[in-house]
Design a protein around this nucleic acid. Structure first.
Lengths: 225, 225, 225, 225
DNA sequence: TATGAATGAGTGTTCATTCAT
DNA sequence: CATGAATGAACACTCATTCAT
């Protein structure tokens, strides 16, 4: 199952192989239960090489967190057209988010489960990424208020709480979609848009949210597949 | 800080002391980083006694999960008047939930962080509790539809997704409230009710949700205290 | 060659067994080349027990140094009659010193070779013991001057240097006596008394130093053996 | 602080750079704690080159011992006028010895501390050099006896012991002088001449040894500098 | 000549777990 | 009922050493 044993690779390539193996192992076993032996074997290299390139288990885990956090935020960023209306941006962002977490379950487990469970310095590493996302959602909510020609008389902390709730819901739905066969990224995004934009009250009243024309909730290749 | 060393306690009492120590240690250090030595010392007993009563680290952790899961579900159950309208029940349940998680941060960490991060058999143990809560919320949503005199033409899986989203949002807000000084259980519950019941769209339109008369968002003793 | 495997010893006894094994191993292999595995095996216990009782390799080595330093200074102290003339005291002290180092070659190696070669905190540990001995010799030299009814117009630092030289000569002769079959502690002591008390010049002139009546250069049992 | 990285040096030069780095590292860290990585980096070359030129860590250390032993004996030899009286030769030899050890503390540490502490084959390597010095001192003592027109009725082994004592005292004083600010090589030599030539007894009687006219206790360039 | 890439073997240390009392 | 004494098994980490280029 490990990578084919190829010898004499340039350092950059080997490092990525190691990070791949580490993300997979950390994501499945957890930070402490993962052994450097197992990671090295899965990467197809000897343990000393892992230490030569990545210094320590702690540094290796931190590198995993950073790489996966960057990949996730980049995926969301790339999926959102910043000039679109607020609900379109949210719809697109959620689509990109659920698509990415579905395609990278181990990376998602590292970020969402493992990094938060093993104290400093890992927790703050992933907290920084999460804060970035929460800030983005907060801006979206304020933009929606502006678009509705309303002063956001909601206090700051109230908006922060709403953004937290939305992000938390998205995280839970990502786990749920990964664990429930047959639920696509698009469906998860639609469920969350309905929930968050219309609210349960409106849903009950028969007024669901519907995707704006032209919004792209998931990557093109996913739709065609 | 450990329990005062008293001799000859009845078994049930000793066991609770051990579970107290274990929940605290597991919640703060994590499952793997917690050592049986530390737990035994914190409980004020010798290590062999922990093994005599609780068999193994795995069994001890499982016992922690079960006890904390039971305590949490019981707290929510006790906070909800089952004959009240759906939104009242949700409001009361959320109040009870945020109150309990705020008062039991270690137990909440065991359930929400540690138990889910260390594979089987712990993950399914806590998944069972979570499924129970999700099922309760699902029933609430269906009841709300009935109260609104609408057939729930929403497909089953759609409702399940909504319930997952709501529960996920609640979990995130519990962490947020615990980490943000000055946010009370009542405020967290109100934020989530607004978010989930009215939806962001209605909030923007100036139609927030407001607590029904007679609903108790938090346990009575909390209000009086 | 290891101690007979006896089970369930009281802690104090086991600790001495471990120190015995450690002194022997450190003395022969050196601090770094000695492995905790080897020490544990030689002591007839498992490695975790060594750690349980003695904490770390560093602490174990420090404990060895302290025990051997205490034993050596105690042996010298016990061999010297403090009310005797200065040269008698030196003669007795040297006898005790050479006897002890001959009977404890591993302990002597720990003190004289290993502890000084591996930096702090070991070096200062043994330096303290050595300083004590140098101070004792310094007092002896000053006492000799007083006995000769001379003001010691030798400057302080000069006397310190003489004491250093005498102690250094004793250390070298201890190694030499241990390495040269047939050289007894008594002979080594006599050689050094001649060298230091009479000086080469006097020896050449046919005026060697001779042991004062009643002085005991070596332990009684050694003489009879 | 390492040598400037210059390419294409002749082999002999590169080898000396490596030995310089090795002596410094071995002298400060000890044989086992010194890593080939550190030595290579300090020498400004890659690790394989060190192995190409010097074969192994053991061989490298042996080469260090040999070079430093040769340098020390050569320094002493160069400082002594072989046709002078015995005490002059000793005085000059000691001066050269203390000067050299003060100027080469790392080399002295290698010879006096490290090489003797790590077993064969290093111990016998340095023992050979030491034996040479002891033999030289033995000859000096016998020559002094001849000069005093006395048959050395001292037995061979007695003279050997005296030489051992003198050399041991010199070694200890070298360490002492290096560790004690303000003690010069000349003072150390004078102290040891007094101690060994006159003896404590004569010192007490007010008959110290005094340097013969024309004797050179330290290298000429030191005096002028 | 010179080196970046790579590893086998071993180190100190920890921990869950079990006896004998 | 309760514990001091003890260990098998594993883990993170390091280092001398060697290829392939």
């Amino acid at each position: 199952m490990g990578a084919v044993k190829t010898k004499r690779m340039p350092r950059a390539v080997r490092e990525q192989q190691m990070l791949d193996a580490a993300v997979r192992t950390f994501g499945r076993r957890g930070y402490m239960a993962a052994s450097m032996d197992e990671i090295a074997e899965l990467a197809g290299v000897s343990k000393p090489l892992v230490y030569l390139y990545l210094n320590s288990k702690e540094d290796l885990f931190t590198a995993c967190i950073r790489r996966e956090a960057a990949a996730l935020t980049e995926a969301v960023r790339a999926g959102v057209r910043r000039e679109a209306p607020a609900d379109s941006q949210l719809w697109e962002g959620l689509g990109a988010f659920f698509t990415h977490t579905a395609q990278n379950p181990d990376g998602w487990a590292v970020l969402h489960l493992q990094a938060r469970t093993h104290g400093e310095p890992f927790a703050s590493e992933v907290a920084a990424m999460r804060a970035e996302i929460v800030a983005f959602v907060t801006q979206l909510i304020l933009a929606a208020a502006r678009e509705a020609h309303r002063d956001p008389d909601l206090p700051e902390s109230e908006v922060a709480g709403l953004a937290e709730a939305l992000v938390g819901a998205a995280e839970a739905l990502a786990d749920w979609a990964n664990a429930t066969p047959g639920v696509t990224a698009r469906e998860a995004a639609a469920t969350l848009m309905n929930f968050s934009w219309s609210g349960l009250g409106n849903l009950m009243a028969g007024r669901p949210w519907s995707p704006p024309a032209g919004a792209q909730p998931v990557a093109a290749h996913e739709v065609s597949g």
